[in-house]
């Protein structure tokens, strides 16, 4: 009997500790599949952020380094500059990347670091229990915005792809949604492209994945997908912002 569907090689056979319905698990799976497809498990270095995905410590079978909150792109810079032969990637949430780590992501992108950053945006601080993130939608409730996010005093939800696309250095800037199978397919193809860019020495790639957080959104799994369709994807437009073929610096 042949195996039709198997666990990606870079994932350990441990139970996922993500909440039921959480799309982090989907993101994990497609990244691992891409690593398999490229055959780069032995040269991949994964820079973990602070947030729910810190739990990746126990689920990945790759060389891993845990970084401080928001600092993953700086850590990845140090690694990649010393080991240009390795595939170095960060996986960061929206609290990590768009709030405390804004300087690190923008500067790494602007330097055109030859790394790949995968950005999971679920519009909330999940790990710490549902506080407002820079990406929380106007009107969306959070434990630090109990009547919903207000424009006055907190501003607009931050659109990272739209910020990064203004820089000249990045080679790939794309936003996908993990809500539908089509979105997952697009996300998988974008991650593949982002990794290939790095392996070919092209430069910085940024892939944003719209995700959910049923637990802190106080919905069930399907309800969270409805919310994404009705609100998240209306504000955060899913498209390719930048896709440059030539290597950065040439």
């Amino acid at each position: 009997m042949s195996e039709l569907y198997e666990r990606p090689k870079s994932i350990l056979p441990n139970a996922s500790s993500y909440c039921p319905g959480c799309l982090h698990a989907t993101a994990t799976k497609i990244i691992a599949e891409v690593i398999d497809e490229l055959g780069v498990k032995d040269k991949a270095i994964y820079v973990l952020p602070v947030g729910c995905s810190t739990q990746g410590l126990v689920s990945w079978d790759l060389d891993i380094i845990g970084s401080a909150h928001g600092r993953a792109p700086a850590v990845a810079t140090g690694i990649k500059r010393c080991r240009p032969d390795c595939l170095v990637f960060c996986y960061q949430g929206d609290g990590d990347l768009a709030s405390i780590g804004l300087a690190e992501i923008m500067s790494a992108a602007n330097r055109g670091e030859n790394i790949t950053v995968i950005y999971a945006n679920n519009s909330i601080f999940g790990m710490t229990g549902g506080q407002m993130a820079p990406t929380t939608l106007i009107g969306q409730k959070a434990t630090t915005a109990v009547t919903g996010r207000q424009l006055l005093g907190t501003g607009y939800p931050l659109k990272m792809c739209e910020l990064i696309k203004e820089l000249d250095a990045p080679r790939l800037v794309v936003r996908c949604s993990l809500r539908t199978p089509a979105g997952i397919k697009k996300a998988r193809a974008s991650i593949l492209k982002g990794f290939k860019n790095q392996l070919e020495g092209k430069g910085f790639s940024f892939i944003e994945l719209l995700t959910n957080c049923p637990t802190t959104w106080h919905t069930d799994a399907l309800g969270s997908l409805d919310f994404m369709e009705k609100y998240t994807e209306k504000y955060f437009e899913c498209r390719t912002f930048t896709d440059k073929e030539e290597r950065f610096g040439e």
């Binding site: 700086a74 850590v75 810079t77 990649k80 500059r81 010393c82 690190e104 500067s107």
Partner: peptide, 26 residues
């Protein structure tokens, strides 16, 4: 060797964190 002017002291020490994790004296 490699010299990087970081965007901040915070980024710089984290670059060292990454570089030193590869065994390079940083």
């Amino acid at each position: 060797g490699v010299f990087v002017q970081g965007e901040s002291e915070i980024a710089s020490v984290n670059m060292v964190y990454g570089a030193a994790a590869t065994g390079v004296r940083a």
